[in-house]
Simulated scan of single mutants.
Amino acid sequence: MITIYHNPMCSKSRECLQLLELEQLPFTTVKYLNEPLSKKEMKELLKKLGIKPIELVRQKEAVWTSGYKDKKLTDTQIVEALVQHPILIERPIVVNGDKAIIARPADKVHDIL
Score class of each variant (00 low, 15 high):
L20Q: 03
V79L: 08
Q24V: 12
I87D: 03
T65S: 07
Y5R: 06
L45M: 12
T28Y: 00
K108H: 13
I101S: 00
V63R: 01
K69I: 15
D98L: 09
D98P: 04
C10H: 01
C16M: 06
L25P: 01
H110T: 14
I4D: 02
A106R: 11
E90M: 06
I51C: 06
V79C: 05
N96Q: 13
A81P: 02
K72I: 15
T29F: 04
Q77H: 07
E21Y: 15
V79W: 00
L20H: 04
A81E: 03
R91Y: 08
P8I: 15
L37K: 01
V57E: 03
I102H: 06
K47I: 14
I78E: 03
R58V: 13
T74D: 13
R14K: 11
V83C: 09
I2G: 02
E23A: 14
L22P: 09
I89G: 03
T3E: 06
C10Y: 00
R58W: 00
K108D: 05
K52T: 11
I78T: 09
V94I: 15
M42L: 07
G50F: 08
K12T: 08
M9P: 11
K40S: 14
D75L: 14
T28D: 13
I93A: 06
F27C: 08
R58Y: 00
E80P: 02
D75K: 09
A62E: 05
P26N: 13
P105I: 12
K12D: 07
I51Q: 06
I112N: 03
I93S: 05
K40G: 11
K69H: 03
E15A: 12
E90I: 06
